[in-house]
Amino acid sequence: MDSMTELVVARQFSAPKTAVWAAFVEPEIIAQWWGPHGWNVPEDSVVLEPKIGGRHELHMVQDANPESVVPLKAVFTTFDEYECLASADGPHEMTLDLVIETRIEFKEFAGQTMLTLTQSPLPHDVIETSTKAWNSAFAKLETLLAEFF
């Protein structure tokens, strides 16, 4: 499809790979940072089955309007501990009836972790908003990690 593209967001965290990995696989940590500023994730909405075929689900709730809820209902397609997570979400209304693949790779060097997130297929017109949302969420994660590292 010509109207589709790939989103890539890379971010370096001043924390070891094991800590950054935990932020993606521990429900109580996910609930503290997932989603852009102005959104929260109730911990009881997080379902994480850490295996290929396992569920990765949560609800992002808008702080200003708690009735505005964005669900994630993905299934893990890759679960390579401390190295790579990948999931498929959709097709449903929130994914524009697409199956969105999200891949997150973790690389460590000198106690720092480089995270690379790739999502596709995405329509060109959502790339800017999606990039801002992920960068906002990663800023929340960076603040959380800074409390410990």
Results as ranks from 00 to 15, higher is better:
M1W: 03
M1C: 07
D2I: 04
S3T: 12
E6T: 15
L7K: 08
L7E: 04
V9L: 07
V9S: 03
V9G: 03
A10R: 15
R11L: 02
S14D: 14
S14C: 06
S14H: 12
K17S: 09
A19L: 13
V20W: 07
W21L: 09
A22T: 02
A23N: 03
A23Y: 06
F24A: 09
F24R: 08
F24L: 09
F24M: 10
F24Q: 05
V25T: 15
V25Y: 11
V25Q: 05
E26A: 07
P27N: 09
I29S: 00
I29A: 02
I30T: 11
W33G: 00
W33M: 02
W33E: 01
W34K: 02
W34E: 04
G35S: 06
G35T: 02
G38V: 04
W39L: 08
N40C: 10
P42V: 12
P42W: 14
E43T: 14
D44V: 12
V47A: 05
L48K: 03
L48I: 13
P50L: 09
I52H: 04
G54P: 04
G54Q: 03
H56C: 11
E57M: 10
L58K: 00
L58G: 02
H59T: 10
H59L: 14
H59F: 01
H59Y: 03
M60W: 08
M60F: 12
V61Y: 08
V61I: 14
V61S: 08
Q62A: 14
Q62S: 06
D63Y: 08
A64G: 08
N65T: 09
N65G: 05
S68P: 00
V69Y: 00
P71S: 07
L72M: 14
L72E: 08
A74F: 13
A74W: 02
F76I: 01
F76G: 00
T77E: 09
T77S: 15
T77W: 04
T78P: 00
T78Y: 01
T78S: 05
F79K: 04
F79V: 02
F79S: 06
D80E: 15
Y82D: 03
A86N: 06
S87C: 14
S87D: 15
G90E: 10
G90R: 11
H92I: 02
H92G: 10
E93P: 00
E93R: 04
T95V: 08
L96C: 00
D97N: 15
L98Q: 14
I100E: 06
E101I: 13
E101H: 14
I104Y: 01
I104E: 07
E105V: 14
F106N: 06
F106V: 04
F106A: 11
K107P: 00
F109N: 11
F109T: 05
A110V: 06
T113A: 03
T113Y: 02
T116A: 01
L117M: 06
T118N: 05
Q119S: 13
P121H: 07
H124Q: 12
H124M: 05
D125F: 15
D125Y: 11
D125Q: 13
D125I: 11
I127V: 15
I127P: 10
T129H: 05
T129Y: 02
T129N: 05
S130L: 13
S130V: 05
T131F: 01
T131S: 12
K132P: 01
W134D: 09
N135R: 10
N135T: 06
S136I: 03
A137P: 02
F138D: 00
A139R: 01
A139K: 06
A139P: 00
E142N: 12
L144F: 13
A146K: 12
F148W: 06
F149H: 14
